[in-house]
């Protein structure tokens, strides 16, 4: 079975804030640590649009620029807080389907299926 080379991303506060803004997601839990803590979170955390974007990047980095992404299906798990290392692993489950798992120290942050055309 083909596996994708793992990719580890340091989830810095800068990454969380810059991606939140670039995805036009202004919810305070993605940029204001005090607000995030007040709402019961440990720290600011990645938004879903970014998780989707990173999953897409992980697969297209491997598949090359000619690949066309048809769909991305995410199951969301534990949050990805600032300070975590998010490690993506992937395997090819059929001709056009790649299963991707993104884990951090708390467990699985995302389990995804990406379909290429």
């Amino acid at each position: 079975m083909t596996t994708l080379p793992p990719l580890s991303i340091e989830v810095t506060p800068t990454l969380i804030v810059s991606t939140a803004l670039a995805t036009r997601d202004f919810q305070d839990v993605h940029h204001d640590r005090d607000a995030a803590v007040a709402r019961g979170s440990k720290d600011i955390f990645l938004n879903i649009l970014t998780t989707t974007g990173l999953v897409q990047r992980y697969v297209t980095d491997w598949a090359g620029p000619s690949a066309v992404v048809r769909s991305i299906s995410l199951r969301l798990g534990v949050p990805c807080y600032a300070g975590e290392t998010l490690t993506f692993t992937g395997r090819v489950v059929s001709e056009s389907v790649i299963e991707v798992v993104g884990t951090n120290s708390l467990g699985a942050h995302v389990t995804a299926e990406v379909t290429l055309a």
């Binding site: 803004l21 670039a22 995805t23 970014t50 974007g53 990173l54 297209t60 980095d61 620029p65």
Partner: peptide, 12 residues
């Protein structure tokens, strides 16, 4: 802005 934040270097 988006590709810069995501670190995505896809040429298209």
């Amino acid at each position: 802005n988006w590709v810069e934040a995501m670190g995505d270097t896809h040429p298209a």
